[in-house]
Design a binder for these strands. Structure first.
Length: 477
RNA sequence: GGCGCCUUGGCCAAGUGGUAAGGCAGAGGUCUGCAAAAUCUCCAUCUCCGGUUCGAAUCCGGAAGGCGCCUCCA
């Protein structure tokens, strides 16, 4: 039985879809004023895990992720760079797609853009005015927070308390400082669209309510996003959608925890702002994915060099083991048997995922099975039959598919990881192989002292070598 | 000031009332020309103080520390 932590109730709830075997998911996408950073990546990997698991469970999934391609920051940034807004947003959408491709994220079924849904947005605002939740003032339209009495239910805030804590804005068209803009009258030179209230553009929150209800209906199953969006973004989305439709908007609200960099919040001013593009220069995409999943999605995660290195080692170990396993599975001729240990692994996996998508527990289960495999593969006596080895591969791939890891050819991934490491440490591959060749020559000549000297040289580069029956292999230690 | 979260061994991290997963690092063993890799063994009573309970890391109250949101933020 799948349980999901619902921000609305602050507890884990059994997942019951609105329609049998079908799940409708909306995830707030990014506002494309800049390139995606690793915080975005965390959110995307988290929702990706969720979507993949629903598919794994056999649900028909409808997954919508938007692009917010019009807002203050975008206008500001475009002005700064003296480029057209469209140029800016398209550039960043491209960068986003590069990141999603590299991270092997499941493609959403729909990816609506705010600027392409002005009609729906205007329509929703009109409904809100008609329903008495919004008012026009000076060419802008505001949502009246006071008029919507369950305002604050998601973020557990009380409107009066909030007003008390607000510094009053001078000169405002708003009736109430907490009211938020649904439609903003445009200043000269800003992008603008026609509306019943004059030329203008949508406020920040309305596009999600309009697009989500358009594609998923008035009420749908899951709405996801980063923790920081709970207030005001999601709170406002609820007010807008429910104010317009009169129906409950979302059944389960899912929010991922934040990512820090070396223990600090990522921000431009601290200079620790890491784009996905940059992270991919130093780490294999699968390492990044696996890293994100090694902590439960609601728990804060720290993007630190130490943690990333550790993850890299783990993944390397897994693929190394998978490589050995594949060798022993060759004789199975396509036959596979899932023995008790393999089956228990799958059970562990499902149990962990059913528990609010606890990928951290899955990671532990992976450890257990890989350790078991390394242990048993080592000697003929304990080695599973080829068909069982094939069965192990199959369960690992099955669980790995949901996490989006361990799907690719072991040899290839091991090489890719090494290449990235070589690049990271600015070490030339040929130099390494030359040294290994030299060492083996010394070994053949039984000149172990010189051979060990070469090994020390390699060690200084951070490389360790393994003499195996098939020759000498090397890896970063 | 308001709302919420977190605090588990040197480090990362599970744990959601039944007697502390896993990993990294460290110590020792097996293997090895020596190593490495792999593997085995060892390594915590859960920030503190009260309470509820036969029994709590897990529930309640309080203290200390850290953090997030309340303005843009995944």
């Amino acid at each position: 039985m799948l349980k999901i932590y619902n921000t609305l109730s602050e507890r884990k709830e059994e997942f019951v879809p609105l329609e049998k075997n079908k799940v409708k998911i909306y995830a707030c996408g990014m506002t494309v004023y800049d390139k995606p950073h690793i915080g975005h990546a965390r959110k995307e990997v988290a929702i990706d895990l969720i979507v993949r698991y629903f598919k794994y469970l056999g649900y028909e999934t409808v997954y919508v992720r938007n692009f917010t391609d019009i807002d203050d920051k975008i206008i500001e940034r475009a002005n700064e760079r003296e480029i057209d807004i469209k140029v800016l947003t398209e550039e960043n959408i491209d960068a986003f797609y590069k990141a999603t491709t590299a991270l092997d994220l499941v493609e959403p079924d729909m990816e609506p853009k705010a600027t392409e849904h002005i009609v729906e947005i205007v329509g929703m605002i009109e409904k809100l005015i008609r329903n008495g939740y919004a008012y026009e003032a000076g060419g802008s339209v505001y949502f009246s927070v006071k008029s919507f009495n369950s305002y604050g239910k998601l973020s557990r805030r009380n409107v009066d308390d909030m007003i008390a804590g607000t510094r009053f804005e001078v000169e405002t068209e708003k009736n109430n400082p907490l009211d938020f803009a649904l439609w903003k009258s445009s200043k000269p030179g800003e992008p603008q669209w026609e509306s019943p209230w004059g030329m203008g553009r949508p406020g920040w929150h309305i596009e999600c309510s309009a697009m989500a209800t358009k594609y998923l209906g008035d009420t749908f199953d899951i709405h996801a996003g980063g923790r920081d969006l709970i207030f005001p973004h999601h709170e406002n989305e609820i007010a807008q959608a429910e104010g317009a439709t009169g129906k409950p908007f979302v059944k389960y609200w899912v929010h991922n925890g934040f990512l820090t960099v070396e223990g600090e919040k990522m921000s431009k001013s601290l200079g620790n702002f890491i784009t996905v593009e940059d992270a991919l220069k130093d780490y294999h995409p699968e390492v990044l994915r696996y890293f994100m999943l090694s902590t439960h999605y609601r728990t804060p995660i720290d993007f630190s060099i130490a943690n990333l290195r550790e993850t890299e080692k783990k993944l390397y170990y897994f693929y190394q083991t998978l490589k050995n396993l594949s060798f022993f599975a060759l004789k199975a001729n396509g036959e596979e048997v899932r023995n008790e240990r393999a089956q228990s692994f799958i059970n562990e996996f499902k149990e962990a995922m059913d528990d609010d998508f606890n990928s951290a527990k899955v990671v532990a289960a992976f450890y257990g099975i890989f350790k078991h495999l390394n242990d048993s593969l080592i000697s003929k006596k304990t080695r599973p039959a080829p068909e069982e080895c094939a069965g192990f591969i199959s369960v690992i791939r099955e669980a790995g598919e949901v996490l989006g890891v361990l799907q690719r050819d072991s040899v290839k991934v091991l090489e890719e990881i090494k290449d990235i490491q070589l690049q990271r440490y600015s070490i030339n591959k040929d130099d390494v192989e030359n040294l290994i060749y030299q060492r083996n020559e010394f070994r053949k000549a039984k000149d172990f002292e010189k051979a060990d000297g070469v090994r020390d040289e390699l060690k200084n580069l951070g490389i360790s070598i393994q003499d195996t029956p098939d020759g000498t292999e090397w890896s970063f230690s």
